[in-house]
Write a protein that binds this DNA or RNA. Structure first.
Lengths: 203, 203, 203, 203
DNA sequence: GATGAATGAGTGTTCATTCAT
DNA sequence: TATGAATGAACACTCATTCAT
């Protein structure tokens, strides 16, 4: 892709994720990219088109990652649960929640979702429904191969995912993503996962 | 309080909660209140002052409610846990998360928190820290009177609160608060609470 | 006169003399007087009326002072020139150029005269024409009683008054009137007057 | 320089010199230039920037002119005083006090100086200190080459400059600069200069 | 590919003034 | 006497966008 266009996308995402779409002006973006405002309109039809392209790119990344996770599910049907969780969680945390690009998009979605129905849908899908859906599949699998006893896989998914979501909101989707916040998140999240499995085994 | 001033506050909160503070103009507010823009400045120093007054009012309400909940804790030390939870949860859900005023404020906080440090702090306090803190106290109490066995009350609080937070985000803090969404939330939340206690009792 | 009305006049003059008429708002005045803006309109028809009253009062003061000086001229026809000048200059300096009220008015006139024909006329009359006219009379008198030799009294007046005017502009009509600036003015002005008479005597 | 930008500067100076900086709105300027208000902000950061550019241009002109006058001083050390004065006064009157650009700036400075310290300084420098300073140098020179007898060159400068300053204030810095006013000024000023030299020679 | 120049619509805010109480 | 409440007109300034070059 064109170099300038890519710069615009990068800077726009950076600013959008910090201040929201409507609070960032074309001027703001151009100041950082160091081009004139009219130049933006050579690369994009309008301001909205920048957002659209960012979101589209995110959805293709997220789709890829999620289908990758789901594939891992079928391949590793026979792996022990520890490994399975270790891998998928690691991947979900590092390449999704804390990935620079994805994290910025999600922060942007967080801001804009309340005033934009289109974005609301994307947010709900990628932050609530898809992860919960995936987690439900994981537990269904574990139940089917009798690693864990029969239970409501949907509710198990909520129990497992809700604290992760809460820690993500607390540490990863507030202001700039710092290494310190990342560590807080990892600490809280892995503690939860460990506790979760201990309880699971004890039953 | 003055009638017009109250109208301005009401309308402003309504619009802010839907679109965010900066996306709502004084013009927008005045169109609904049916006054001229300059009249706003008789009642408020500037646009920010409207937000400040709304937030201040929320904080006084939230403070009142939370101290009320905490008082209930001391009084009912001898009540059975079922009652305690029933009351506090009901109150927390209906008079806080789903209360028209508080819910709007929280939606507003959700939108603005990522681009406003001041609001970030308020959000974190009233949505994360204070409720988790309260829930921790509840579990400490239950542990101390041996209704539940010794355990990490802090982690118990997270396990208990995280799904509620997730359901609230999913159903209560997205777009206008409809009766349908309220029912979805209640359904999910009370299902979680019931399950939570069944597990508690079984251990 | 009514106490509040007087306060408004005092404060208005103070602010006008510092910032000019149009740069001072009714709000500014009311903040200092500690009344509501609407109250001003009980005492004055409009903003302009405040200015009018201030100017009118100034003109009555100035008229009084100048006629007093002119009277001194007739009475003291036989006094020696030294005394005459000493008295009139002292009076002109202290009770006119450096009088708190008159000085503020003149600073106000200075600001506004360029954009206001009415004020331009008042300024020209009381700052240029009247003093030069008076001074001309003084020199005419001195010439007529042969204290100084025949000369062009009009030009003498300019020679005498111009440096005083320059020193006044330099020290008395720039920013707030401080004691320091007053002293600078007195120093410069009396030095000039002394020099002026030495030269006069030597011819 | 850009044509529109120059037009804005010209019109702005014209209006500022008549009404003062703050009394002239961007709208006023745009009406005359025949552009939309928003266009101004393509050429200037804000209203203040227009003033700044005007003042800066004036100071470069004034600096040039004054250094030119001072150079004339060294070159013509041997010229007779008549010539020297003739040339410098002519230049100072026509290219400074009555030059269209400089005169407008000085009227603007006159209006704004009382409410703006920055401008007060510029005014004092270019209207009082610099001209008096130059004139002092002229007299020092004349004294040193014994064309005039030993005397206080500083006081001579005041005696020489004060009437010119007074006539300038009376005729050149009041309302629009008309040919009639220019003639009044020239008449008064040259009469003073002639008288001044007659007296000088007679002593 | 990029930009100089312009603009219409909109932003928050200030102002002098009015008028019923 | 004083003020609470309101307003129309103006203000400096920002914004996304257009278009000829």
């Amino acid at each position: 892709m064109n170099e300038t266009k890519q710069k615009i996308l990068d800077v726009a995402l950076d600013l959008f994720s910090q201040n929201g779409f409507s609070a960032v002006s074309i001027r703001d973006i151009c100041k950082v990219v160091d081009i004139k405002e009219s130049s933006v309109y050579y690369h994009f039809k309008n301001k909205q088109a920048i957002l659209d392209e960012l979101l589209q790119h995110f959805e293709s990344i997220a789709t890829g990652l999620m289908s990758q996770l789901e594939q891992a599910l079928t391949i590793t049907q026979k792996t022990i649960k520890g490994n399975l969780f270790e891998q998928t969680c690691d991947c979900f945390f590092e390449k999704y929640l804390m990935d620079e690009y994805c994290n910025k998009i999600m922060r942007l979605l967080s801001i804009e979702r309340l005033s934009n129905n289109e974005i609301q849908k994307i947010y709900n899908y990628w932050i609530f429904d898809k992860p919960l859906n995936f987690q439900t599949k994981v537990f269904s699998l574990l139940i089917s191969i009798r690693i864990i006893k029969t239970a409501d896989s949907k509710y198990l998914a909520v129990k497992f995912y809700a604290p992760i979501y809460l820690f993500a909101q607390r540490w990863l989707f507030c202001g700039t993503l710092t290494d310190e916040h990342k560590q807080f998140f990892r600490g809280n999240a892995y503690e939860h996962i460990n506790n979760f499995f201990k309880e699971m085994e004890s039953t």
